[in-house]
């Protein structure tokens, strides 16, 4: 489902992630735990590119979301001038590749310095595998610590906005494309067929509205459909933020400390909704401080510390039998 491949993230001089790799499988619930500032939120935000990784690649359902990282493709390194020079200088191929990786020898900034073959190969890999990030995000819901409901929209509009906009934009695009083909068809002998537009805007709006009402009923807030977010409690806001993401029928949901900004008595309602989702088989990645919750719902727990995944194991192993000394220390403080 999601493949995180050797991710590095620097903010100016601050190195937050220092080479993180992991895979999120379909239907899996993965919790990310760790101290404040350990990089766990950054890791989550790198998954949908709200933070663009400095190096490394993110893959979703076999599609590449980030630019190509040459160090992760052996054939790309082999096409580079640096590698050719090293090999010509008498270094064994495997050693040369290890040396290039270890010493960061590829000239990425001025990629023409690595030769045409290298550039063409990167372009080819990118074109074959790349998926537009906006399309990818439509299949990746995200829930934030601060809820981030749209203040200028009612609850219902909050939920309907993305489904309506993303689909109407497709229609708009198709219409423009059709107009262009029509114009060009005037000069063509063999007429090109037009793109079929099967839905109207009214249909899309009606569907989105039905879905929004259904989702609000599910969380028992249908009477709040037409109020503005500022009148809601934190727990209500967060549950609405979750169904807003669900309205796009995502394949995976990312949760960034969803209960950290809530009053204690409201945490339960949000966690219950998340548990329901997990039971339904939703793929979920959850950054959380709620250890009990992580232990209960997760299939796997990642302990992130100092920019690395220090431990990656089942919740039983993490909480019963932690190996990493930093994890032991962390658990002794929070449990």
């Amino acid at each position: 489902m999601l493949n995180i491949n050797n991710i590095y993230k620097n903010f100016e001089d601050l190195k937050v992630l220092k080479g993180v790799s992991t895979e999120i499988k379909e239907g899996e619930v993965v919790s990310i735990i760790g101290a404040s500032g350990s990089g766990k939120s950054t890791l989550l935000r790198c998954m949908n590119l709200l933070e663009v990784p400095t190096f490394g690649e993110v893959w979703m359902e076999g599609k590449l979301l980030t630019p190509v990282d040459p160090y992760l493709h052996r054939e790309v390194i082999e096409a580079s001038n640096t590698y050719k020079k090293l090999v010509a200088g008498g270094i064994a191929p495997d050693e040369a590749i290890a040396k290039i990786k270890a010493e960061d020898l590829l000239n990425e900034k001025f990629s023409s310095a690595e030769g045409k073959e290298y550039k063409a190969l990167i372009k080819k890999i990118y074109n074959e595998n790349h998926l537009d990030i906006n399309l990818a995000r439509q299949k990746m819901g995200m829930v934030f610590q601060q809820f981030n409901l749209f203040n200028n929209k009612t609850v219902k509009e909050n939920i309907m906005l993305a489904p309506i906009k993303t689909r109407t934009e497709k229609i708009k695009k198709a219409k423009i494309e059709n107009a262009l083909t029509k114009c060009l068809n005037l000069f063509r002998k063999e007429k090109k067929p037009l793109v079929e537009i099967t839905e109207t805007k009214a249909q899309i709006v009606a569907e989105a509205e039905a879905k929004a009402i259904e989702l609000l009923k599910r969380i028992g807030l249908e009477e709040k459909a037409d109020v503005y977010p500022s009148t809601l409690s934190g727990g209500q806001k967060q549950r609405i933020a979750i169904v807003r993401a669900l309205a796009m029928n995502p394949d995976v949901m990312l949760f960034d400390e969803p209960t950290s900004a809530l009053d204690p008595e409201m945490i339960g309602e949000v966690l219950d909704l998340m548990k329901d989702l997990a039971k339904e088989g939703m793929t979920m990645v959850i950054v959380t401080h709620e250890m009990g919750f992580a232990r209960e719902v997760s299939d796997r727990v990642l302990f992130v510390d100092e920019g690395y995944i220090k431990e990656d194991a089942s919740p039983e192993e993490i909480f019963r039998n932690p190996q990493d000394p930093r994890l032991k220390d962390f658990l002794s403080k929070v449990l």
Binding site: L50, N148, T166
Partner: peptide, 25 residues
Amino acid sequence: DKGQTEAARSLGLNGTTTMTNIVLP
């Protein structure tokens, strides 16, 4: 609030739609 932009982008809306529907109003 930056979170408004992030929420819109995380739903797959593009920059222009986010600007005209969420940020500018």
